[in-house]
Each structure stands twice: as structure tokens, then as C-alpha cells.
Simulated scan of single mutants.
Amino acid sequence: MTGVCVLIPGTAMAGWGPSGKSNGAKTVSSGTRSGSDIVSVVRFSGGTAGSGGSDGGNVTPVGDWSPPACWYEPRSAQEFSTYVEDMYDETVNAPGQANYAKSSVGEFRDTYKDGQYKNYNLGKADKGNWWVAVRDQTRWMEPEAQACDKAPFWVETGDTPDVPQAATPQILAELAYNRLHLPETEVSLAPANVTKVNLPTWAWLDETKFKPVSVTASLNVGGLDIRATTTAEPVSLRLEPGTRDAESFPASGECTFGDSGSIGEEYARGKAGRTPPCGISYLRSSGSGTYQLRATITWEIAWSGTGNPGPTRLPDGTFGSTQSIKVQEIQSVNR
């Protein structure tokens, strides 16, 4: 996995000092080493809906809720020992490395090697794991990412880590939420791109493109084997005309998905006198410019996983995009 940081001291980015507070971090991505980095043990799979591909984007939660910006994961005694020793060697031997960085990493190493703990608890390797704070690197400057500020700590096998945000199926489900990739929401219109004042414009979505999207997050280390699958299903489309001088169909502006998985109804010859089940009617010309029609889909999101056959609801999410609509006056001829 990319885009996460483990809060253990690095070289130029010294992190944990004797106080146990973080002032920096190293990039991580799986339980092995890559250069001087430890990689997160959380794995993700899935995440792209239908033919969304790279044209879509990530879901935005509705309301104030957001997925965790930091959490805690286990490391075996050997993994933790190897990481700290290598980090120490790289820091003290780095040309031009600041003395404060060497001192900080040295004090951190002493705590786990010859101080509060003895030799990284390698003699107890079969009885527990180290737990370390991890944060999403794409959010590492956010205040929420600094909340996991506890120095690496030992947890006996079978015990529950006494910290909030310790990796659980629920935490994995919320991390998977942040990796849901949803398809572009450009709607089909008739008339397309250019319409007339007071002329109903039909809107619909391709039912083959908007299917449920799932991401599975899994963690298997030190006897902990948990997973969670988070699934988003499209439930409605909101059309915002880009001007107050417009009428929406239905009046709420909210078009719902039908049993077939489609929204709205494709326009066909002979429907000109009908009101579209999903669409808009502009009441004023856009002049020499265009209106920006925004189409936003609401996705209902739930998860199931280890210990939770579910599904259990998470906050709804949205994803939308805009497209330009030119509205012209209907021309009349006087005789």
C-alpha cells in the first residue's frame, strides 16, 4: 500500500524522542523493508466501479465524519528490532546529519534495546507484538493525523491494545471507505450541450457504468488476521442547473435509481410533449456564456467483515462533476 507513514524516527526527519511525542515521520508501505522504510501491513484490493477508470474520483463523506487519518498496527519483535537498528545505523552514519537527530534516534533506540525494554522483547517474540502509530501520508498535515501520538508499545498476545484507533475490522472498513474510486458522473442530455429556453432537457445515466463498488482491507500479522469489505451503492442523482433561473424534474432535483440500475429515461422521438422523469428546464438564456450543470451521485455505503457479517452502515458519500450547458433563446419569425 502506498501513502501511509509510520511514526518512528527517521534520518533527517527525526520522529519519536524520549517524550514519546511525534515531530516527524517515515514513509511506510508493507511489513517488509524497502530502503529505510517499513511498509504498512494493511492491504487493499478493489475500488473501481464499472467503466469509471481514471476518469472518476474518491468518495466524499456526507456530514462532518471522515475516515481515520491515523491508526495503530502491530509489528513483530523482529520487524521492530530490524527497523530501529537500521534506522539508528543510517542516522548516525549519515554525512552531515545533525547532532540532535542522532541524539533523538539514539535515545529512542536505548528505550527499546537497553532501557525500559530489553533487546526489543526478542525473547518474548512468541508472546506478543509491538504496536506502532501509522498515518495516511496524503493527510499527514491534518490535525487528525497527529492524534496517534503514543510511542511504540508492547501488547501481549490475546490482549486488546489500550488505545483508540487500534486496527480493528471497523477501522479497516473506514480506511477502505477512503479508497472507494467512483465513476465520472457526467450525464447524458437531450438536447445535448445546447438547449433552448423553456425547453425540457432530458437527463439520464448509463446503467452499465453505475454499479456497486467495493474495497477490501485486510491485515494479517502476529496472529492478528482481520479483514473488512466496504461497498458503495448508488442511490440518487442530484442535478444543480448552475442558475436559479431553472426548473428541475422532479422538483426536488433528486432523481433516484430504478430497479434496472439506471437513472432517468433516455430521450427518444415522440417524447417531446412529455415531462422528463429526470431533467431541467432553463428559464433564461446563458447569453454568450454557459451554465455549469453539476451532477452529484449519492452513494449508500456499508461494510461487513471479520466478526461482522453485516452489512453495517457507514455515512453516505457523494461524488460529482460539472458540464457546460449553453442555453439559447427560441427564435421566432414575424410575417
Rank of each mutant, 00 (worst) to 15 (best):
M1P: 02
T2G: 07
L7M: 13
T11D: 15
M13G: 15
A14H: 15
G15H: 11
W16N: 15
P18N: 09
N23L: 06
N23W: 12
G24F: 15
T27M: 11
T27E: 04
S29N: 12
T32F: 15
G35T: 03
S36P: 03
D37N: 14
V39W: 07
V41D: 05
F44K: 00
F44T: 02
G47M: 06
N58T: 05
N58S: 03
V59P: 03
T60P: 04
T60Q: 10
T60M: 05
P61L: 09
P61Y: 13
G63N: 08
C70Y: 13
Y72W: 10
A77P: 01
F80I: 13
Y83Q: 12
V84C: 14
E90K: 07
E90I: 08
E90H: 09
T91H: 01
T91F: 10
V92N: 09
Q97E: 15
A101W: 15
A101S: 15
K102Y: 13
V105P: 07
V105M: 14
G106F: 11
R109E: 14
K113Q: 09
D114T: 09
G115V: 05
Y117K: 02
N119S: 13
N121E: 12
G123F: 09
K124F: 14
K124H: 15
W130A: 06
V132L: 04
A133P: 00
Q137S: 15
Q137A: 05
T138P: 01
T138Q: 02
A145Y: 10
A145K: 07
Q146A: 08
Q146M: 10
A147D: 11
C148R: 13
C148K: 13
C148H: 11
A151P: 01
P152D: 03
F153H: 03
V155P: 01
V155W: 05
T157K: 13
T160R: 14
D162S: 07
Q165G: 02
A166W: 14
T168E: 12
L180I: 06
L180T: 01
H181E: 04
E186Q: 13
V187G: 04
S188K: 12
P191C: 06
P191G: 03
N193L: 01
V197R: 02
P200V: 08
E207C: 06
K209Y: 08
F210T: 02
K211P: 00
K211G: 01
A217S: 06
N220G: 07
N220I: 08
I226C: 03
A228F: 10
A228L: 07
A228G: 02
T231F: 09
E233F: 15
V235F: 15
S236E: 15
S236V: 10
P241M: 09
D245M: 03
A251F: 00
A251C: 00
G253P: 00
C255L: 05
G258L: 10
G258N: 07
G261L: 08
I263P: 03
G270A: 02
K271M: 08
A272Q: 11
R274C: 02
P276G: 03
G279R: 13
I280M: 13
S286Y: 14
T290F: 13
L293M: 15
R294L: 08
T298Y: 11
I301P: 00
W303K: 04
P309H: 12
P311T: 09
P311E: 10
T312E: 08
R313L: 14
L314E: 04
P315T: 08
G317V: 02
S321E: 05
S324N: 11
V327C: 01
Q328W: 04
E329P: 00
E329Q: 01
Q331F: 02
Q331R: 02
N334C: 10
